[in-house]
Amino acid sequence: MTFLDRTTDARRFRQWEGNMEADYIYTSGVAGERFFVALRDGGKMLASRCVACNLDYLPPRLFCEDCFAELSEFVDVPPEGRVAAVTMAHLDRRGTPLSRPQVWALVTFEGIRGGLVHRLLVPPAKARVGLAVRAKLKARGDRVGAVTDIEGFEPVRS
């Protein structure tokens, strides 16, 4: 008969250990290169513009997913965005309680398709949909051209 009881110790059974070792280096791509260089060097976020569909994509894309045009025009994302949804994480990935809940938000920008998921830099009680926010960036010298150059989003008016 097979193992019917729940066990938390797989080593009680005859077993082999394995490790699916895999390490990666991901290229940020053609549109991603523009976005991350502008974020690092200019401290700003870019969207790519589809003229035909009158759409701006954030994060920027090389192509319009709808009309399939190649996109080469980039525009600045407005500095002020709005919280579209929030969550408060109470447990870490292993299920261990966090000392303080982490606040995460989906931030969208007027007239822009898409948005960014990032830390929301407010106490849980202040996290709400509709909050006007802006990106808080690391200092120029600490930015490397990655999504973590953004520390999170903070309220425009505290």
């Binding site: 991901y26 290229t27 940020s28 791509g29 053609v30 549109a31 991603g32 290169e33 894309r61 090389l62 192509f63 399939f68 190649e70």
Partner: peptide, 16 residues
């Protein structure tokens, strides 16, 4: 061996 394009961007080029 290594292209700058992401997988999605490569797909777009071939598809287009």
């Amino acid at each position: 061996r290594r292209l700058q394009e992401t997988g999605k961007e490569m797909c777009f080029e071939a598809t287009k």
